[in-house]
C-alpha cells in the first residue's frame, strides 16, 4: 500500500515531506525504543512511536525508514522537520494511541516485523 493511501485511511496530519507519500509501506513497527528499531532489517517499514525527539528521526535516517507516525498527539519540532527534509522522511502526527493506530494498520494489511 502507498503511504498516501494509508494516511487516507487512518487520518493524521502530514507535517513534512509530502513528496514521500508515494512510497510503499509493507511493514510497521511500534516502539518508543530506538535501540529496538535499529535491530530491524526490513525495507518499506513505517515506524509508529510516541518518542518525539531528534533521535527518532536520526534512527529513521540510519535505518532507511520511509516514514514516522507520532502517536498520542506528540508534536514534531522544527529540528526534527529540518532533519527529515534532508533525508526525505515523511513525518506524520496522529492524535490517537499507539494501540489504536497499530490495530488500524494491521486491519489494512500492513504486516508486523515478527
Amino acid at each position: 500500500m502507498k503511504l498516501e493511501e494509508l494516511v487516507g485511511h487512518v487520518g493524521g496530519n502530514v507535517i513534512c515531506c509530502k513528496e514521500g507519500l508515494n512510497k510503499e509501506v509493507e511493514y510497521a513497527f511500534a516502539s518508543d525504543l530506538m535501540s529496538d528499531v535499529l535491530t530491524l532489517k526490513n525495507e518499506n517499514l513505517v515506524l509508529i512511536t510516541g518518542l518525539a525527539n531528534i533521535q527518532a528521526v536520526r534512527t529513521a535516517e540510519m535505518s532507511d525508514l520511509s516514514a514516522i507516525i507520532f502517536v498520542r498527539n506528540k508534536r514534531v519540532s522544527e529540528d526534527m522537520i529540518r532533519l527529515a527534509q534532508e533525508n526525505g522522511i515523511v513525518l506524520i502526527e496522529y492524535p490517537g494511541t499507539m494501540f489504536r493506530l497499530s490495530g488500524m494498520l494491521y486491519n489494512l494489511g500492513v504486516k508486523p516485523v515478527y
Partner: peptide, 15 residues
C-alpha cells in the same frame, strides 16, 4: 528518555 539504553547496542554493532 532519548530512546536508547535497552542493552541492544553492542550486540547490534557486532551483528
Amino acid at each position: 528518555e532519548m530512546g536508547f539504553g535497552a542493552g541492544m547496542g553492542l550486540p547490534n554493532i557486532k551483528d
